[in-house]
Design a binder for these strands. Structure first.
Length: 876
DNA sequence: AGAATCACG
DNA sequence: ACGTACGTGATTCTC
């Protein structure tokens, strides 16, 4: 039997748009609705095994029913621009996929679907209607199925309705469903209905009187009530609503279903559109061979003569790019490229050893003046002993500066952005394949290796050019590229951890956790998983009946913020708070860190340079930038981070670097004066904002002022500040106004920053680092507001990040140049830690403090606090 | 895979 | 009227 699928294009696009987070192509075109739409319809097409498909759309021109509504109540809201721009694109895609589009001037999509469904039924199709709009339920019959997709916890589930299911759910038949809409209205569909009548009442009335006419025939005999009054007063509205809700079944349809067969959707034409919109998850559905847009020849080098001949050519080349091919920390070979026609794949083996090739590559840079390029230099340094002076071009790093909001910088992404070429990703090429000696003979593996060498070769000049254009060339050459070597040092050095002490700490925690678990279960009267916010919420707010079920998203919030307010409501609350704290310390730190201690007794975490949008470094595996310090018990962990024998830690951190940067960038005289006089900035702010003489500022006022200062740096909002200080929005508003009255130039600076960012699409730090903020162009208030706050924060946070990068580079250089054995071990955003040989303590501490203080020339001093200790705990 | 929570700057 | 502080990463639970 032929299956006809009728899709309500507008409503599904709408659902997809609001259900899927924003997605854009690299050049900023929105695709979330298209993506969601295709996902839903392809899923349904597959389930239904549809043979014929029509997608109906509304045309822009207003229809009769719209006009009736607008006559009733103002103008209908248009769709947001981000959705609007996706409409022509989805139609283009459907066309390319040979899916019939139905549009008729003067008719809405649901009228067309109604008509088509009747026509389909008459012609013997099994008809399925897919819509996000419950209005369409009136079309359900014994054979016509109406399917309504719902997003539940991120997953799309589809509700199915035949006529009998409509009766089960709403208590009325699909035809009477229209009358029901007439009575109850539908806010999402802009149908007014009769005031005071909702789903329950409407169903009751219709069950009793049959239909709308029946209700009104009997209205006079009803006993006096508010409802009766409403019915009588709004009779016209009820009938208007019914007309609004009635779907037409007699539109002209100028084609036959034979012209709507579903065939060959994943063809070459469709592929180019999917590719253009970067809808990668659909690529695999296409069987068409991908066009090879990067043509080159791979040459396998696996004998010494071949290698020597290649090496001779490389030594005469001007530019060479390469990729060190590794798996699980083991090097297999190297891909090399010195022209656009060939990629040489050097396979490590008996006579072509890794060490030899590594030496030869280093020599290319050092002895033959060859300019080298590759993708992720820091990852290579454990194999190739490049130094800062070698100036190997890092395509990934350059691409990060140009677009720091990208999630990764692998060859396929770089090729798409800078060459407009779509290459299969590593995952697509290799899957879960394990590489080995014979992989060099596999064509796919060869391609994968080759891409990693040829992509940097091809894009290097483009990246250079763009860095110049955007004024970020010196940022790249003088800050980011050298910084990578300092970061590598820290990764290589690692930090020593006392494993036994860590174990003892964990043991102490676990003992207390067991006690707490028992106490909490006893108080709750049952055993349950305290780690499950869902279960915990049920226990607290249902079983124990605690009042504050206030914050919800997918249930009750049980965050510390909420629990803190309930502290005195029930003795179980403080126990839970303590339990939370201890389990966090145990799993993330005590147990988590233990797994990272290597044979050398040290933890070698990773420092990522191309992750944050603002220019900061991030730390992972493990994250060493969020080791506890704020709470005493958590802070204890820092005692297990210790220097090796004969060394101590020197720990130096900037004092309020972001506020100082703000003072400099805004040029605010009051703020600058305060810092130049080395005043307590939070106390000064308190005195100004709260109109209190400086000597009468107590700790509470100072704390509040500190929160205001933080708020300024974060892109102040009265709501956020109010939340943080637990005061009213109004009160917070007052603080902010007073702050800006005191520091007028700061306000000017923040306003100017947002304005420039809106104009340019990005913010800029003192050192030229850009952060794109596409959210500023959003038509969505919330998204745009976020963009504004981010714009206020980015130059400040970013400049601070720039400054400490400069300091790191200079400190690292001096340690090397002065042949010191001390080594950088950690960077925590405004803090640097050096594991210092005791005999070098004096000089190293001086170097660290001096270089940090003078890393940037601001109009206010950059103050640095330094401490020495036998553990991280003691050095802070 | 994503949400909730919480550790840091 | 909209519903929020900026920037990260790890763990656990839930789907």
């Amino acid at each position: 039997m032929n299956k006809l699928l009728l899709i309500d294009g507008n409503s599904i696009m709408n659902r997809a748009f609001y259900g899927i987070p924003d997605m854009t192509t690299n050049d900023g075109r929105h695709t979330n609705a298209i993506y969601g739409f295709l996902n839903i319809i392809l899923k349904v097409i597959e389930e239904e095994q549809a043979t014929h498909i029509c997608v109906a759309f509304d045309l822009k021109k207003k229809t009769f029913r719209h006009e009736m509504y607008e006559a009733y109540k103002g103008t209908r809201k248009g769709m947001p621009e981000e959705l609007h721009e996706q409409m022509p694109r989805i139609k283009e895609i459907l066309q390319a996929m040979h899916i019939r589009i139905v549009e008729q001037e003067g008719f809405e999509a649901d009228d067309l679907i109604g008509t088509l469904s009747k026509k389909g039924e008459r012609e013997g199709f099994a008809v399925t209607i897919l819509s996000g709009d419950r209005d369409l339920l009136q079309l359900a019959t014994d054979t016509v199925l109406v399917r309504i997709p719902k997003t539940k916890h991120g997953k799309t589930e589809v509700e199915d309705y035949y006529a009998k299911n409509v009766v089960e759910t709403y208590g009325v038949t699909p035809l009477i469903f229209i009358d029901m809409k007439g009575l109850m209205g539908d806010t999402s569909d802009n149908i007014p209905g009769v005031p005071g009548i909702g789903e329950k009442t409407a169903a009751k009335l219709l069950a009793e009187y049959g239909d709308l006419d029946g209700v009104y025939a009997a209205v006079d005999s009803m006993k006096a009530s508010r409802m009766k009054q409403n019915l009588i007063e709004n009779k016209d509205l009820a009938y208007l609503s019914k007309t609004l809700a009635t779907i037409k079944l007699d539109c002209p349809i100028p084609f036959e279903f034979s012209e709507a067969t579903y065939h060959d959707p994943f063809n070459a034409e469709a592929y180019t559109l999917f590719e253009d919109l970067e809808l990668k998850s659909f690529y695999k559905r296409f069987s068409v061979e991908k066009k090879e847009e990067l043509t080159f020849e791979t040459v396998l080098i696996d004998d010494i003569d071949g290698y020597n001949a290649l090496l001779a050519k490389l030594q005469k080349a001007k530019e060479v790019s390469f990729a060190w091919i590794t798996q699980d920390g083991e090097a297999l070979g190297v891909a090399v490229c010195m022209d656009l026609e060939h990629v040489y794949l050097i396979r490590f083996m008996m006579f072509i050893t890794e060490a030899m090739v590594a030496d030869n590559l280093l020599a290319l840079s050092r002895d033959y003046q060859v300019q080298l390029a590759c993708m992720h230099v820091k990852k290579l340094l454990s194999f190739l002993d490049f130094h800062e002076e070698d100036a190997v071009f890092d395509a990934g790093l350059a691409a990060y500066l140009l677009q720091p909001n990208q999630s990764e910088y692998e060859y396929d992404t770089l090729a798409k952005v800078y060459l407009d070429v779509t290459l299969p990703s590593e995952k697509e090429m290799l899957g879960k394949e394990k590489l080995g000696y014979f992989s060099f003979e596999d064509e796919k593996v060869q391609k994968w290796m080759a891409y990693q060498a040829i992509v940097p070769y091809k894009i290097k000049s483009v990246l250079r050019e763009k860095l110049k254009e955007t004024g970020m060339e010196s940022l790249y050459d003088e800050m980011e590229l050298p910084c990578l070597y300092a970061l590598y040092e820290m990764e290589k050095n690692g930090i020593r951890v006392d494993g036994e002490a860590l174990h003892q700490y964990g043991k102490k925690l676990r003992t207390r956790i067991e006690e707490l678990t028992a106490e909490i279960h006893a108080m709750a009267g049952e055993e349950f998983n305290i780690n499950s916010p869902k279960k915990l919420g049920e226990i607290l707010f249902e079983k124990l009946g605690l009042k504050n079920g206030k914050k919800t998203k997918t249930g009750y919030s049980t965050s510390a913020e909420v629990l803190e307010k309930l502290k005195n409501a029930h003795p179980i609350i403080p126990k839970i708070l303590e339990y939370r704290q201890l389990t966090k310390l145990n799993s993330t730190y005590a147990e988590g860190l233990a797994g990272y201690i290597r044979a050398d007794g040290r933890i070698h975490g990773k420092f990522h340079q191309t992750v944050t949008v603002t220019g900061r470094i991030s730390s992972a595996d493990p994250n060493l930038q969020n080791i506890p310090t704020r709470m005493p018990l958590g802070r204890e962990i820092r005692k297990v981070f210790i220097p090796e024998e004969g060394s101590v830690f020197v720990d130096a951190d900037y004092s309020q670097i972001e506020l100082r940067v703000l003072a400099h960038m805004s040029g605010d005289a009051a703020l600058i004066a305060a810092y130049q006089a080395d005043e307590d900035i939070h106390a000064i702010t308190a005195s100004q904002v709260f109109d209190v003489p400086l000597d009468q500022v107590d700790s509470t006022l100072r704390r509040k002022a500190k929160a205001v200062n933080f708020g300024i740096v974060y892109g102040i909002s009265s709501f956020g500040l109010g939340q943080d200080l637990d005061i009213s929005r109004k009160e917070a508003e007052g603080y902010i106004e007073k702050y800006f009255a005191t520091y007028g130039k700061v306000k000017e600076f923040l306003d100017r920053t947002v304005e420039d960012a809106k104009k340019n699409g990005y913010t800029v730090t003192m050192f030229g680092r850009r952060r794109p903020i596409p959210e500023l162009a959003s038509s969505n208030f919330m998204t745009r507001s976020f963009g504004e706050r981010a714009a206020m924060n980015a130059p400040v946070q970013g400049t601070a990040a720039d400054i400490i990068k400069i300091a790191m580079v200079r400190v690292n250089r001096r340690l090397k140049k002065e042949h010191l054995q001390s080594k950088l071990v950690l960077q925590i955003h405004d803090e640097l830690i050096i594991e210092t040989k005791k005999e070098e303590l004096e000089i190293v501490q001086k170097i660290l403090v001096q270089e940090m203080m003078h890393a940037a020339d601001l109009v206010v001093p950059l103050l640095v606090d330094a401490n020495v200790g036998d553990s991280w705990y003691d050095a802070k």
